[in-house]
Write a protein that binds this DNA or RNA. Structure first.
Length: 566
RNA sequence: CGGGGCGUGGCGCAGCCCGGUAGCGCACCUGCCUUGGGCGCAGGGGGUCGGAGGUUCAAAUCCUCUCGCCCCGACCA
């Protein structure tokens, strides 16, 4: 294509609203323009890149026997009521009414639609397994869209769904997806982690997340440098660092002492001259309408996800009035001793500890010499969030926390949807059974965004050739020079004949402008046709490495092809 | 939903405190010039100052309300 005819509105300066690099560059390079909060128009370059990403995904999904569908993105509420998600999704679901007043919603994911097709058409185990997918727009009414294309209200997702007769079959479908996802992200030129993930409130037994380490990300991933264990912080287990001070070795009874105006862990620590890890942190949470007293080591943080799993549902912090009513004291003076009106859950890190400090359930008083399991009883389980510096649960090496972008998620759904929506097949014995499902998502824009986050420099993007909008740009340094122009045209034709996505920068601009623009939009290779032309030589420049080499005119296209596939 | 910030030509900003003819850089158009990293010179077009109401002889500027956007937090299979 000829650049002079294209709409590639590059900007010299960064728009102020953009903070993360990928957002700035996608705007500056003329890939996208904002329409409203969390809604972007994908201009020519973005669309080309997304099409390449979609094609890679399509090829790899097809390779595992998945079948592409095209589904409605506007759904009747009835389907969502059947699965229970109409109520569960809350404000995140885009809802609307048709002219007859019937409730509708915009596609969030497609479990309901896929399951409804399966239940009405799939009758026999002989038809299983099935893997169905789509690459379409999804809608989520995010409370806070942010970071360019990273968190938006309308985006493109590849989501697939597997239907199997039994768990062994689901394992196979899951592994196929795991494999396909690795192929997809490899081909997109991304460096990613495969991490154990929380399977969520929707049930499900196993889940992995594909994560791109990046400061722009919103997920925290715990990574072990020793054995490679990695898990989403919502799920990660760890061995805590030992307490900063050893427990006093003495037989003593809990003893009340005054702590005037000391409410926080830090204030009490300073007052008693002991580290945070010598204290018991007491949090009051509410699951449904049931209060829970949650105990952690003073320097640890609660993982609400782990607590929710333990409690079997969503949890929230108790309100100050509730705490006052249940404990007779404020939040700064709580402890487990004497508490009989609610269940007490204690983090594993408190097991075996002795003579610790906790609140006395009386304002401005604490207790010392409190020994878990002796002075109070509790259910011990893993409740704390892993922290950087903790030991790996598998090998003991030090865990690191990395911020990541979640680009893909695979998920054993189990019977959640097939059960509630009544999908049934006959098995080999002629008995009616419920098929087991998996669901598997990839965010297309997040692949592009991650590629920019991982590949950029001060001049712009350095996109991997597989997903860049063009492979190569041919740049005659002086387009008014007839010889250069003719040579550039001929090289451009050569490139196209070689199967390269080529762009000819035929604009009557100064060389600096052309070079800057080419760097900005991230085309992986550039062929400069300039002052060496009289010797029959042009330059092939690799964007990412900023390497330039002289090649004979006739070999320019082949040189790019070699570098692209290298 | 809580906290903070910002809305002035396509983009980046100044002007606002202390009311008095709306400005700068880039981009855009015309001409000349120039051609290896966002040239140079000259001329030119383009703005309901987010919106509504109020105060005032007079509002981009002061007051009230409102809308939008960004950031932090909460939220987020």
């Amino acid at each position: 294509m000829h650049w002079s005819n294209l709409f590639i509105p590059t900007l010299r300066e960064n728009p102020t609203e953009a903070e993360v690099v990928s957002h700035q560059l996608l705007l500056r390079a003329g890939y996208i323009r904002p329409l409203a909060a969390g809604l972007y128009s994908y201009l020519f370059l973005a669309q080309r890149s997304l099409r390449k990403i979609a094609q890679i995904i399509r090829e790899e999904m097809d390779a595992i026997g998945a079948q592409e569908f095209y589904l409605p993105e506007m759904h009747p509420a009835e389907l969502w009521r059947e699965s229970g998600r109409w109520e569960m999704m809350g404000d995140n679901l885009f809802r609307l009414k048709d002219r007859w007043g019937r409730d509708m919603c915009l596609g969030f994911t497609e479990e309901e639609v896929m399951t409804s097709i399966a239940r009405s058409e799939v009758r026999s185990y002989k038809q299983l397994p099935q893997i169905w997918y789509q690459i379409q727009t999804k809608f989520r009414d995010e409370p806070r869209p942010k970071s360019g294309l990273l968190r938006v209200r309308e985006f493109i997702m590849k989501d697939s769904y597997s239907f199997d007769l039994d768990e062994a079959g689901l394992d196979v479908s899951y592994q196929k997806h795991h494999h396909a996802y690795c192929r997809i992200f490899d081909r997109c030129g991304l460096q990613y982690l495969v991490v154990e993930a929380h399977s969520g409130a929707m049930g499900g037994s196993q889940s992995h997340e594909f994560a791109i380490p990046s400061d722009a990300g919103e997920d925290w991933i715990a990574v072990c440098a020793g054995c490679g264990y990695s898990a989403n912080l919502e799920k990660a287990e760890s061995r805590p660092m030992p307490p900063a001070a050893s427990d006093p070795d003495l037989e003593a009874k809990p003893e009340k002492f005054a702590t005037p105006n000391r409410k926080t862990i830090a204030e009490v620590s300073e007052f008693v001259g002991l580290p945070d890890s010598s204290q018991i942190k007491s949090l009051v949470m509410v699951a449904g309408d049931k209060p829970l007293l949650v105990l952690l080591r003073g320097d640890h943080q609660l993982s609400e996800t782990k607590l929710a799993s333990a409690a079997g549902g969503e949890v929230r912090p108790a309100h100050p009035e509730e705490i006052r009513a249940w404990f007779g004291a404020g939040a700064g003076s709580l402890g487990p001793i004497g508490i009989t009106n609610m269940e007490i859950l204690a983090d594993e890190a408190l097991r075996g500890r002795r003579n610790m400090i906790c609140g006395a359930n009386e304002d401005d008083f604490h207790l010392r010499h409190v020994t878990p399991g002796q002075n109070f009883q509790a259910r011990f389980l893993d409740l704390r969030a892993a922290a950087a510096g903790d030991g790996c649960i598998r090998c003991g090496a030090t865990l690191d926390l990395k911020k990541c972008i979640e680009i893909g998620h695979i998920f054993k759904l189990g019977y959640r949807y097939s059960q509630s929506m009544g999908a049934r097949v006959l098995n080999a014995e002629g008995h009616e059974v419920t098929p087991i499902m998996g669901s598997y998502g990839i965010g297309l824009e997040r692949i592009l965004t991650s590629a920019v986050e991982q590949g950029h420099d001060k001049d712009g993007m350095c996109l991997p050739p597989s997903i860049a909008p063009f492979d190569v740009v041919v740049t005659p340094v002086n387009f008014n020079d007839d010889a250069q122009r003719r040579a550039a045209e001929s090289i451009y034709t050569q490139c196209r004949a070689a199967g390269l996505d080529a762009l000819l920068d035929d604009r009557d601009e100064r060389p600096g402008v052309k070079f800057k623009d080419a760097d900005l939009i991230g085309v992986p290779f550039r062929i400069n046709v300039g002052k060496k032309l009289p010797q029959g030589v042009v330059e092939v420049v690799t964007r990412r490495a900023r390497q330039s080499s002289d090649v004979p005119l006739a070999e320019a296209a082949r040189a790019v092809l070699e570098r692209k596939t290298a």
